[in-house]
Write a protein that binds this DNA or RNA. Structure first.
Length: 597
RNA sequence: GGGCCUGUAGUUCAAUUGGUUAGAGCACCGCCCUGUCACGGCGGAAGUUGCGGGUUCGAAUCCCGUCAGGCCCGCCA
């Protein structure tokens, strides 16, 4: 049947008789000669038909329309000099069609034009409803190809080079405390009881280490019933890995080689190794976030010590209350950013307010180091303090200094968001750059204000740093995140493998012994039978593919994604079910469409 | 749970800011065209302006509600 894919034909095939299958991407009828761009997943090639050279196919080409499925038999020919198309990979050749067979027509109006959707974007709800058409587009087909390439590269590297074994873990598993909301599945056989879909294979992969699997990986589907974002879907795919008898440096080095291999095989891009590392503390200090985008500068500068005794109460008061004062210096910001935008009602003010800040103080640096700011700041900073401020922030003429003052987490969140907004606006982000970095030494726990308790920042099986065992409450974890251009694309840790340490962690997060036994008894018990030191990592595959494809939405890296309301517009899931189905499952819905809440 | 944005022909957009019969490109239909490649030319058909209500002499435009999609906050160990 088929001898070649459309997009692969080139001068080396000249003279060959080929059989092609594909879709009509476009048809150009010149009255005496008809051109058809024939498309398959590899690309497009031009089919030519005219009454003299291809008398049989000419009438067959006449009724063809966009997206018809056809079979073409013809000869690969050199295009005339004047008709070469350097924009097409196949632009040196064209196919003289001996015969064209219509295999299937389009019987309804197309919801959108496949051939031009790459240049004239289509509403996303339409794309999702007719996803099978959307996936015909070159851009989406390309993204799916990247995704496949990434998975393939992962498998080759891990299996062939590093001796990893792929193991599938259950999708019907049990609900565990901590973490995201679970998707639940009622058990028919066990009325009143529920499975949960896994948020990750975390516990199983640790058990596999107890089993001696030594090096495990899985392309694993994970489920979290939380609200969606441009980079978050309720079901998503992880590259999940776990290995025994390796320390952090060995694990990071292996993963650097893996990531470099992926970029090299899929895109031919060299990633320098080792990747830069930042501790969590450094990242928060310099960028205000644990996943900094380091493709541009705009680093934060802590000036708490400088202003703690000054007369400007917003600054000194923040420090006195245990908070901090930090500066975001913006070279050229005077020109770019007006006062109106910083003051109440302005867009930058709103960004700051949304992060919890009361406002943004500012200083504009003019010629000769002159200062332009509100009186309350000007009058309360001594000349030498001002000088020190300028020197620490590297401010020169034209620099705008934006201040965050208050509780540490609010200041960091505020300046992080403002930093990102400004980098985007001032076009400071080099589009083709890949900045991979490790963030290490995360704290074990963070305070949950709502529940008035510590909770695990990573997850409760993360090993505390050996130097910090005396006080777990403030301990660092042996945990690491891989950050790419401001996105967390992977994260992992060394795990606890001694039951007594695990018990101490459960104690710290306020998980009672009884509850720990109930929820994780099987894990604790397994740890009694000879558990190797182990650790691992999991990558957000969809997010990685999104970034590699240059997309801004995770949906463009997933074949059949869900909308922000977690709906599938193609299948109309979720849907109501028969009463009989519910009854069989011993489940009743409490949903009341009439109720106000 | 909350904030912001969007919804007009199959589709992508427009409609002088409340005023005549809601327009244009592509797609579709018909005619013409032998070197185009987002081909071109002439003509045609195509509209519940998401849906419901209200204000007004008059609503795509203003108001209220509702549905759908997007971005964000909260949430996401």
């Amino acid at each position: 049947m088929r001898t070649h894919y459309c997009g692969t034909l080139q001068a080396s095939h000249l003279g060959e008789t080929v059989t092609l299958f594909g879709w009509v991407d476009r048809r150009r009828d010149h009255g005496g000669v008809i051109f058809i761009d024939l498309r398959d997943r590899t690309g497009v090639v031009q089919i030519v038909s005219d009454p003299e050279r291809t008398p049989v196919s000419y009438p067959q080409a006449d009724p063809l329309r966009n997206e018809y499925v056809v079979k073409v038999q013809g000869r690969v020919s050199q295009r005339p000099e004047a008709s070469l198309n350097p924009k097409l990979p196949t632009g040196e050749v064209e196919i003289y069609a001996d015969t064209i067979e219509l295999l299937n027509a389009v019987r309804k109006p197309l919801p959108f034009q496949v051939s031009t959707a790459d240049v004239e974007p289509v509403r996303e709800d339409l794309r999702l409803r007719y996803r099978y058409l959307d996936l015909r587009r070159e851009r989406m087909a390309h993204n799916m190809q990247i995704r496949h390439g990434v998975i393939k590269a992962m498998r080759r590297f891990l299996e062939d080079d590093e001796g990893f074994v792929e193991v599938e873990t259950p999708v019907l598993t049990r609900s565990t405390p901590e973490g995201a909301r679970d998707y639940l599945v009622p058990s028919r056989v066990n009325p009143g009881e529920f499975y949960a879909l896994p948020q990750s294979p975390q516990l199983f992969k640790q058990l596999l280490m107890v089993s001696g699997l030594d090096r495990y990986y899985q392309i694993a589907r994970c489920f979290r019933d939380e609200d969606l974002r441009a980079d978050r879907q309720p079901e998503f795919t992880q590259l999940d890995m776990e290995m025994s008898f390796m320390d952090q440096d060995e694990i990071l080095a292996l993963n650097e080689a893996l990531v470099a291999h992926i970029f090299q095989t899929v895109q031919g891009r060299d990633i320098p190794q080792p990747f830069p590392r930042l501790t969590y503390a450094e990242a928060m200090d310099r960028y205000g976030t644990d996943k900094p985008d380091t493709r541009y500068g705009l680093e934060l500068v802590d000036v708490s010590d400088l202003v703690q005794d000054c007369g400007f109460k917003v600054f000194s008061g923040a420090v006195a209350a245990g908070g901090i004062v930090k500066v975001l210096p913006i070279p050229g910001g005077n020109e770019q950013i007006s006062n109106v935008r910083i003051k109440p009602g302005g867009d930058l003010f709103k960004i700051a307010a949304a992060a919890g800040a009361k406002g943004l103080a500012y200083i504009r640096v003019r010629a000769e180091g002159a200062i332009d700011t509100i009186g309350a700041i000007k009058d309360n900073l001594a000349p030498d303090q001002m000088q020190e401020l300028l020197s620490r922030t590297g401010a020169t003429e034209g620099t705008l200094l934006l201040f965050g003052a208050g509780p540490t987490d609010i200041v960091n969140a505020t300046l992080d968001r403002v930093r990102q907004a400004i980098a985007k606006e001032m076009d400071l982000i080099p589009a083709d750059q890949l900045n991979l970095l490790w963030v290490t030494d995360f704290p074990m726990f963070e305070w949950n204000e709502d529940e008035q308790r510590l909770e695990a920042l990573h997850h409760p099986f993360t090993a505390p740093h050996p130097d910090d065992m005396d006080d777990l409450g403030t301990a660092r974890a042996v945990a690491y995140d891989l950050v790419l251009n401001g996105y967390e694309i992977g994260g992992g840790s060394l795990r606890i493998y001694q039951p007594e340490v695990q018990q101490r962690v459960f104690d710290t997060i306020g998980l009672s012994t009884a509850e720990a036994q109930d929820k994780f008894g099987f894990l604790l018990e397994a740890f009694e039978y000879g558990t190797p030191p182990h650790g691992g990592i999991a990558y957000g595959l969809d997010r990685l593919v999104m970034l590699m494809a240059g997309e801004e939405s995770i949906r463009d890296a997933i074949a059949f994604p869900k909308t922000q309301q977690a709906r599938c517009l193609l299948t109309q899931a979720p849907s109501s079910v028969d009463e009989a189905q519910l009854k069989e499952l011993s489940v009743a819905s409490t949903y009341d469409p009439e109720a106000d809440e």
